[in-house]
Write a protein that binds this DNA or RNA. Structure first.
Lengths: 272, 272
DNA sequence: AAACTAAGTTTCAAATAATGGAACCAAAAT
DNA sequence: ATTTTGGTTCCATTATTTGAAACTTAGTTT
């Protein structure tokens, strides 16, 4: 049926496609905005938007007649973040790490073929929020992305690599699969990798993968700085300290069990 | 079916119901956990979970054979938070407010019949994240909840009130519709309301609604403290200062337009 | 004011996808 | 070795989604 590889999981998949579409605008949109970029007929897009709005996945601003992503997503993301075996467990560790090394620390996971930052601590500006967590970036030219890819199983890796754009951001960007694969072998043999101004000029980082005992990739941790402030060699010197945090996180993440709370709050709470 | 509110928006609504179900556990769940509480037959629940997982709305932990909310939600929530006309605009104001008054400030919106906290600043502990934003609470016994309800249109208010549980948390909890409606009239005449230990013992707050020029409820702002630290009268004295923030936020939220970025990042970024 | 146009909403038969009882499989428990 | 439990697949039936087109505003133009 679906000619392309877009394995649209039925109706639900299509609805989520609309949701992503709205997200991709990065601003509230008019019905026709969505219609223009959607590949479904008018009535279909209309009904999906209606459904999503009624479900709180989209919100409608009657004054401006625009749709935006709904707050139900914020609620769900709160749960997602909490439920994740990685982020809540890692938070105290990366906070401490950030203070110790005095540089920005990122915690990332792989979301399809992209890097998704699930936490960030910048010792400089203490208060950050959703503005940082939830951000996505390219995998092939970030420290965390490469660190994670280096430890993927061959078939999964192939899939992920296939989805990289290899857009050239700087003169140091790895611009093809061959270069990337070579780099990954390197990272794997060292246990850590760098971002050598591959994504943004002057920005460099060291990154380590976070793995389960069985070797499955949970995420990655990076310490980021700039060429003005420090050097790759100096960052490399931090590896043992970062490794400490990584090990602690990996151990805790694996042994972590949720407290036995059989009496949970149902979502129908408000109905009582 | 049963209760009136079950306006299950077709397949998509059902899928999202499953998603909420998973969220409600507050921990990773086994397939059978979901099956037990879901009101759909086995095969249906199974396929929904498959679809949601393949879509990244759920994540599957192969080691533990459990499902949890997926990281795609975190990515979407990031966009939701950014796109919201309220939260990003309000953030600097509530940060300043929190510093000025030296107490915890909450920014909340109404999510169906519940209060959803979209931001929180605690001058004491600077770093908080998803751990706070995204939290939900009851509307009928929180300052922000009542402040928002006080300014809803009659039909909408009736609907929201109908969904309140009126669970008695403390001896001060408003325990029925009559008491609540009386309180709302009061709040409306003052322009602000309190939480008089109605939700948690010792915890008190003042809350003001954030309204558009046309009077539509955008959200609410509250300053929270405890009976040990301060009194209702002292909190009331802060109203003018809070009102400043509210007015600033309301104005900015209404005049806010997203920068004209016709060349937006498509979700297909990774495919280039 | 009438005529056009654009944006949003509703209709309804046809096409398609969801449903769910039952069978199946695998692994654990007896 | 046999039963139970938890998870996955099948497939005929059923119900939902689909989408062209008609319709309704609201906003412009003549």
């Amino acid at each position: 049926m679906s000619l392309d590889k877009t394995k649209s999981d039925g109706t639900v998949g299509k609805a989520l496609e609309i949701l992503d579409l709205v997200a991709s605008f990065g601003r509230p949109v008019r019905f026709s905005d969505v219609l223009d970029v959607a590949e479904f007929p008018k009535a279909t897009v209309y009904r999906f938007i209606q459904t999503l709005t009624s479900q709180g996945m989209l919100s409608y601003d009657p004054d401006r007649q625009t749709y935006a992503l709904g707050i139900r997503l914020v609620r769900l993301a709160h749960s997602a973040w909490q439920q994740s075996s990685l982020a809540p467990v890692a938070h105290p560790h990366i906070e401490k790490l950030a203070r110790d090394v005095g540089e920005t620390v990122h915690l990332a996971q792989l979301d399809h073929a992209q890097v998704l930052y699930v936490d960030k601590i910048d010792p400089g500006k203490p208060i950050e929020m959703f503005s940082q967590a939830g951000k996505v970036g390219p995998a092939y030219c970030t420290g965390v992305g490469k660190a994670m890819m280096a430890y993927l199983e061959a078939p999964h890796l192939a899939e992920v690599i296939g989805q990289q754009s290899f857009h050239v951001f700087t003169e140091f960007t790895l611009s093809d699969e061959t270069a990337l694969r070579a780099e990954l072998v390197d990272i794997r043999s060292n246990g850590y990798g760098f971002d050598r101004e591959e994504h943004e000029p002057d920005i460099i980082c060291v990154a380590l993968p976070i793995l389960t005992a069985r070797g499955r990739v949970l995420g990655a941790l990076s310490v980021t700085s700039s060429t003005q402030r420090t050097s790759l060699a100096a960052l490399e010197a931090l590896v043992p300290r970062i490794q400490m945090a990584v090990t602690a996180i990996a151990n805790e993440a694996e042994s972590w069990r949720f407290p036995d709370q059989s009496k949970f709050q149902s979502i129908e709470t408000a109905k009582g």
